[in-house]
Nucleic acid binder design. Structure first.
Lengths: 182, 182
DNA sequence: GTCTATACACGGATAGAC
DNA sequence: GTCTATCCGTGTATAGAC
């Protein structure tokens, strides 16, 4: 009925939404299947395991983030734009994806080491791009700044997902920018 | 053989260590029991459920954090001490406990609402004390600052636990202080 | 491709002996 | 208090029909 790629993508979307909210191990294949509107068995037509779905999500998200970060670096080099806007866009991208990938999270998910090793480079490159972009915006100690920024955005997305009261996106990004700018 | 309170405490310690590293739902009662050196069944002599162990850990950690925060607030009001030192001490306390409790984490653990409601006040008070302490140190927008600080320390502890390369505690606390101080 | 049925392992929890 | 044995629900994954 659906194109093969469509279904795959639906599954990835459903799983992404559930993993990001409840965490990898608390999410069952049944829940993913139900969200897609098929049965659990059908998932295994597209993916050989739950871990493989997780790996695909991570690869997909990291690819998008990496592309985005590369673009931000380019923007920063060519024009002079406010840091707050860059952070605001970063939060938007992360909210759209609904999930912020950090190596700790992957380690906590207890994903098979071989899969983990495969995604490490993408993770490292995304972080490197973020660091360079911050440096380009004149942020001091960009390594540590990137660390703080990633964790702040990670927590922001999570809290929004769980309906926990938190500052507006605009307020939050301006605050973070003000921390790094001074 | 052991005093009743001792065993209870051993169980709490083992569970704390495992929950904080692998997360609540990825940790099994068997693992906790093995770490203590008893069987799973024996755990149920002391605790009626896995959730109850979790609740006890949270209560214990929050009590310590709350006391510590109250002390920091007092210190700050009476003497004038560097912010970096306060942050450094906070990280030490969190590393010692091995776990930083945030409401998102409790929500993600999918703990029974009734238990969750019980710990909410302690969570709120700890955060309030942190906010006041930061304000006392002259930190602007202390609400947002507390948010960023908690998440940074949370991530720091987690990364240390998983052996992920990160700045030294001293460097990290000084950096965070420098962000808030300016 | 999607389903029903099922195999199989794991995890939480209890029963009852010692 | 701690154990062995066991119950039972859930979860991943597979077999095989349609």
């Amino acid at each position: 009925m659906k194109g093969k790629t469509d279904r795959r993508q639906e599954i990835v979307q459903a799983a992404k939404s559930l993993f990001s909210k409840k965490g990898y191990s608390s999410t069952s294949m049944d829940e993913i299947a139900e969200k897609v509107g098929i049965t659990k068995a059908s998932l295994y037509y597209f993916f050989e395991s739950k871990e493989r779905i997780f790996a695909e999500i991570i690869e997909e998200v990291l690819a998008e983030i990496r592309n985005y970060m590369a673009m931000e670096l380019k923007i920063c080099k060519e024009h002079s734009r406010p840091l707050a806007e860059m952070i605001d866009r970063t939060i938007s991208i992360c909210l759209k994806n609904g999930i912020v990938i950090r190596s700790v999270d992957v380690k906590m998910a207890d994903i098979h080491p071989i899969i983990f090793e495969k995604i490490l480079p993408a993770l490292a490159e995304a972080k490197k791009n973020l660091r360079q972009t911050l440096a380009c915006h004149g942020v001091a100690q960009s390594e540590l700044a990137a660390e703080v920024l990633v964790n702040s955005v990670h927590a922001y997305v999570l809290q929004r997902k769980h309906g926990i009261k938190i500052a507006s996106q605009k307020e939050y990004s301006q605050y973070l920018a003000s921390l790094f700018a001074k």
